[in-house]
Design a protein around this nucleic acid. Structure first.
Length: 493
RNA sequence: GCCGUCGUAGCUCAGUCUGGUAGAGCCCCCGGCUGUUAACCGGGUGGUCUGCGGUUCAAAUCCGCACGACGGCGCCA
């Protein structure tokens, strides 16, 4: 059985639906295989058969029915309605079958009485296994004895498709849940996250469009990378070597000189064997680039887009957030400007906490956690040492040892969610930097044209969408921020 | 790339230290129960103990090698 809460620490597992199965209420039939048949077949060692009622199924239009959430609000009490969903749990006692049905909005108990429905329908309600699809018609009543306070008294109950034994039970290991991810996506935990993810993506589009940015689309297949150190996935491109993109960085700069203010949300790929709770090999990257702008200009967009996404999630998905353990009030209180410190200041703060960092070293996970400890919203750290920063970041005119780059660092152990910078505009300096960083200048000739034709001050950043969602939903692991996570050890299902 | 933990029924685990007939709970199946709330009660099916090799009269258990998964660090978004 599904369990709404289990004590194993593995993600309290009540499923609450994903979306509509395109099904249609079947007509009443008098003959239908029962689970008794299934039992005899499985005992004979044959493959367990899944029965479908094929009359009118999956053909043409599918009539709309109310959602369970409306029933639970009390809006339909006393009415005769039809519901469609999946069986979450069944209990049978004497002549009554209590079938808990879930749809994408919630779960509701359907009381199926032997006297109230045809015999084959009662048998179906009694025998259908977890995650069988079913439709029910009946009267909605308020009843204290029912979980949630409401139930349907069924007049008709049709099993649309009998499920096989559902593999997800109580006591779930992380490993097993990843193996059956295609079924685990039906869980209440996953569907809650997906709804927030939906809101966050919408909010990011909303923000940039509202600020006059154009959505543009860089290629996924590229001849070169842009981030020194990051590893690229190889693609065999008609006998030539190509790569999956790890950043739209270079294309963004080209497009910013075309459309001035551009943004994009799409997948990025990193072939790094990073085994952490913050890394995916395939993740959704939001990137923006702006011409006639400096670091401080784009930094404002970074904090404001995060603020907007946090507020929208709190508005639209408060119940989901609570279910996930994130207090929506904390997100409501997110406000700009975020606290903004320099790398040098970060080092001073860390020293005060007893963490001595050598100047020039990047901030590690440990240090990022120390800097954001106890904070309710992200902070910004800027002006990093030039060493070990990507070649395209502009030197700080006030101190050539620094670059005009910044990170947005989130609390709750999520860490860096945004990395951005003002871009270097000096052509000769760039050529030299490319060589210095071990890259082949020949691969970057097209990019250098951006400095030869209409070169202007410009800046941009990249934001990890799953990291943002991880922070907003307070997730322990980034892989739950995306339906089918890709990590070094796993790319299936 | 480095470090650690684990692998026994469909699932979650005990059994391994101290070698001697493969165990429990859940799922599923059968029976009972006229309002269940993760229902409950009784009975039952279900095993390549990750793989290969070694030690031994005897290996889930001891030794070696391999594979797989998970966790942490580094790197990054």
């Amino acid at each position: 059985m599904w369990r709404p809460e289990d004590s194993s620490g593995c993600r309290g597992g009540a499923p609450s639906g994903t979306g509509a199965l395109r099904s249609r209420a079947p007509r009443a039939r008098t003959t239908r295989p029962s689970r008794g048949c299934l039992r005899r077949e499985s005992r004979a060692g044959e493959r367990r058969e899944v029965f479908l009622r094929n009359d009118n199924l999956f053909s043409g239009a599918c009539p709309r029915v109310p959602k369970i959430a409306d029933v639970l609000r009390g809006a339909l009490t006393g009415q005769d309605i039809e519901l469609k969903g999946w069986i979450y749990r069944t209990r049978t006692i004497g002549g009554k079958a209590f079938v808990v049905l879930r749809d994408s909005s919630g779960v509701l108990q359907v009381a199926v009485s032997r006297e109230s429905v045809p015999a084959d329908q009662f048998e179906g309600a009694e025998r259908a296994l977890i995650e069988s699809a079913a439709t029910a018609k009946g009267t909605i009543v308020a009843d204290k004895r029912a979980p949630g306070g409401y139930e349907m008294r069924a007049k008709e109950f049709h099993v649309v498709s009998f499920a096989e034994k559902f593999p997800i039970q109580q006591d779930l290991s992380e490993e097993f849940l990843l193996d059956v991810r295609h079924l685990w996506v039906r869980s209440q935990r996953m569907t809650s996250i997906f709804r927030v993810r939906h809101t966050v993506f919408g909010a990011v589009h909303e923000y940039f469009r509202g600020e006059g940015f154009f959505e543009v689309h860089p290629p996924m297949i590229t001849p070169v990378g842009s981030e020194g150190g990051a590893t690229l996935f190889n693609v065999e491109y008609f006998g030539k070597k190509a790569y999956l993109t790890q950043s739209w960085q270079l294309y963004a700069e080209a497009l910013a000189l075309s459309m001035e203010k551009v943004y994009y949300i799409g997948p990025s790929f990193r072939a790094e064997k990073s085994r952490t709770t913050r890394h995916l090999t395939e993740y959704w990257h939001c990137e923006m680039e702006e011409a006639w702008a400096g670091m401080d200009d784009v930094l404002k967009h970074a904090e404001r887009v995060i603020e907007h996404a946090a507020h929208r999630a709190a508005e639209e998905n408060p119940e989901d957030l609570k279910f996930l353990g994130r207090d929506p009030d904390l997100l409501v209180k997110v406000h700009t400007p975020f606290e903004h410190i320099t790398y040098d200041e970060a080092l001073r703060r860390l020293k005060a906490k007893g963490m001595e960092i050598e100047w020039g070293k990047d901030l590690r996970t440990l240090e990022e956690r120390a800097l954001t400890e106890g904070m309710g919203q992200p902070i910004i750290v800027s002006r990093y040492p030039r060493v070990s920063q990507a070649f395209y970041k502009r030197r700080d005119p006030a101190n050539p040892e620094l670059v005009l780059g910044f990170d947005v660092i989130a609390p709750d152990d999520v860490g860096e969610i945004v990395g951005g910078s003002e871009r270097e505009t000096d052509l000769e300096y760039l050529k030299q930097a490319i060589v210095e960083f071990g890259e082949d200048p020949a691969h970057y000739e097209w990019y250098l044209d951006t400095r030869r034709f209409g070169n202007v001050q410009h800046a941009g950043f990249g934001m990890g969408m799953e990291r943002l969602i991880q922070w907003i939903c307070k997730l322990d692991h980034i892989r739950d921020a995306i339906p089918f996570p890709r990590t070094p050890a796993r790319f299936s299902p």
